[in-house]
Design a protein around this nucleic acid. Structure first.
Lengths: 217, 217
DNA sequence: CGTGTTCGTTAGAAGTTATAACTAGAGATG
DNA sequence: CATCTCTAGTTATAACTTCTAACGAACACG
């Protein structure tokens, strides 16, 4: 009964073709961005004609949604692998930057311009909280020798996003700061806003990371 | 001879129609994002049929480029007006956030996902440095009671982006931090990454701004 | 070895950007 | 004021896009 046994030869073939489609899609996105992704062009490169792809993805949007999901998963895996390999917050930061530089458009698929009406599917928000969980793990390992702030109190009252993670308010604040500050420098670097300004983006990233770790407030 | 006298009635009409086109384009972008911008739809809304718009913009890309230019100019004006009205760094920060919240897609037109091949036209980089100049003006007014850092030295060696502005290394660093950190929180807020997390994005923005101003390093 | 599911095909509808050729009207000029 | 020119908007068309429908052929399965 239609149950997709993962070992069925048809299912195996299907999964492989889906993967190949996504492969070509990633190349097109890396080359010219999401708006330039064309199902027709992907089909042409695969030596298959047009509507054949609709056997594998119901629509262009579904393909893109799948790529977004994969991007989230890739980042979550990168974080988790780095963390279990012993990386601290600094290690996670460099893992993040390396991952982003590896494919800037993949980063922007997650953190770039959103479509006004778009709502992320349930599972991506789940993966997103996995990412946050790893970050909180790393931040919890840091000592907090700094005084409380009003915003930390606010976070303590609104800590549902930590999803039960036993992090101190200081760790919550640190994780949030990690996220927003590194995203700030990284996204501007990836978008090319620093080109022609002279300084080294890697040094700015490192300086922000250092600030983040040796912070008092 | 063909010289566009700004008072020629034809030129006035032309400028007005161009403005109306851009007006409708902004509405479409605000509603569904840049990819959903359709010249045909704009023409339909204006009660005019399709190719008529090509008298006013050579291509869809040229229209978008013009909108980007206007977005930059709008931000530069907002900053300049706030500064001459006496706003300090805090004032500029809130002017920035208000401006961004007013039309998130306009913000993302500048700081959102870039198209891989795209190079901004010369004048937008000029407007961009006007924005930076205003920010440096405000940062120069702040006292810097903090010790030098290696990155500040690096900035001092690569201060061409300041475009001759007589800012101390501390002010340069402060301007850069203002930019990256506030962009970090703001872009994540505008993209909706904080929705459902519980805390108040405005408080996070204020906390980051406070950190920025009362910073030691 | 049938039998049915599924895959890929071609045809086509509805949309897009953009160009070409034409018409009608407005502005500029004598 | 008459005329001339230039331009704005029109329709037709090409080349693209996503996506649906109907068909044929190949493959897995009982």
């Amino acid at each position: 009964m239609g149950e997709p046994d993962p070992k069925s030869p048809r299912e195996r073939y299907r999964a492989q073709v889906r993967a190949e489609i996504k492969e070509h899609a990633w190349k097109q996105i890396a080359a010219a961005g999401v708006p330039a992704l064309s199902l027709n062009a992907v089909a042409k490169q695969m030596g298959v004609s047009g509507p054949a792809l609709y056997r594998y993805f119901a629509s262009r949007d579904e393909l893109i949604t799948e790529l977004i999901r994969d991007a989230y998963q890739s980042l979550a895996d990168t974080f988790r692998v780095a963390f279990v390999a012993g990386a601290d917050v600094t290690g996670l930061a460099h893992a993040l930057r390396d991952w982003a530089l590896e494919d800037p458009q993949r980063y922007f698929l997650i953190y770039g311009t959103p479509a006004p009406g778009y709502h992320a599917p349930e599972d991506t928000t789940r993966i997103s909280s996995q990412i946050m969980a790893t970050l909180l793990d790393a931040c919890a390992a840091l000592a907090s020798d700094s005084p409380a702030t009003p915003f930390r109190a606010h976070l303590q009252e609104h800590r549902d996003w930590a999803d039960g993670h036993p992090a101190t308010p200081a760790a919550l604040r640190r994780a949030l700061t990690f996220w927003t500050r590194l995203h700030g420098v990284l996204s501007l670097e990836l978008a090319g806003h620093f080109t022609g300004m002279g300084f080294d983006p890697a040094l700015l990233f490192a300086a922000e990371l250092d600030d983040l770790l040796t912070q008092r407030a």
